[in-house]
Design a protein around this nucleic acid. Structure first.
Length: 232
DNA sequence: TACCAGGTCCTCG
DNA sequence: CGAGGACATGGT
């Protein structure tokens, strides 16, 4: 099996996922939904969410975002002027709150100092430059950077996470040694489009959460017929 | 109770 | 390089 086939199987099994979940202007919590585009606030929310979601369940991130939302903190300026202590308190549920509160503030401070506070200006940079810039920020690694590139800046960059690695190693019976290797494997097998990368990553998360977990539920898995691990 | 979750950084061989 | 530990909450 190839990545494109996996994509089609998953899409068929789960349908479109409506990623990345963001908060509507009149709402307080993020929702999955197909959208035409994102507001400036929603783009910033994606970035915040990507940092908060590091090695943490999305449920816990949702609560943190809800707190930020209620306190008017879903903006570059607000995060930049909020104290790190207060921020840590609000994002407590997302875990690693001390580190993450610092990361959020560094991210916001960077946008203030380099782009006069305009996240749109930053996100409109060419993809390679922007990726390097994001990676240079402390606390933003490859997955967080790529999530921002794909889901906030709409650049065609395939996002790799722990699910992607686990699923790929099981389904394709291959060993991947680096983030870049995994990313190249998927990017070379599917159309280079934002829509496709968006959906594929979301579908992999869905599969990873519900079936291809550490202790997999292979017998109920919708793609087990095509999985090397299940057949073994 | 222990393990896991949409990682990243640091340190040590 | 790569392995191993620290960071931390909430759900099962």
């Amino acid at each position: 099996m190839k990545p494109l086939k996996l994509f089609n199987l998953l899409l068929n099994a789960f349908g479109e996922q409506g990623w990345w979940p963001v908060t509507e202007p009149n709402a307080v919590k993020p929702s999955y939904k197909k959208r035409a585009g994102l507001t400036k606030r929603q783009k910033f929310e994606v970035c915040i969410g990507a940092i908060l979601a590091q090695n943490t369940s999305w449920k816990n991130v949702e609560k943190a975002i809800e707190n930020l939302s209620r306190n008017g903190l879903l903006s570059v300026k607000a995060i930049n002027s909020c104290s790190q202590k207060k921020l840590a308190l609000l994002i407590r549920s997302s875990g690693y709150f001390n580190q993450k509160s610092v990361r959020l503030k560094r991210f916001a401070a960077h946008i203030v100092s380099c782009y006069n506070g305009s996240i749109e200006k930053m996100l409109s940079k060419p993809v390679e430059k922007l990726r390097e810039e994001l990676l240079s920020l402390h606390g933003i690694g490859p997955e967080t950077a790529d999530s921002i590139l794909l889901y906030a800046a709409f650049k065609p960059v395939f996002v790799v996470d722990a699910y992607t690695k686990r699923i790929a190693e099981r389904v394709f019976a291959k060993k991947f040694h680096s983030y870049a290797e995994l990313q190249a494997f998927f990017e070379s097998g599917i159309p280079k489009s934002v829509a496709c990368y968006n959906e594929f990553h979301a579908l992999l998360v869905e599969l990873g959460k519900n079936y291809c977990s550490k202790n997999p539920k292979c017998s109920e898995c919708p793609i087990n017929k095509n999985c090397y691990y299940y057949k073994q």
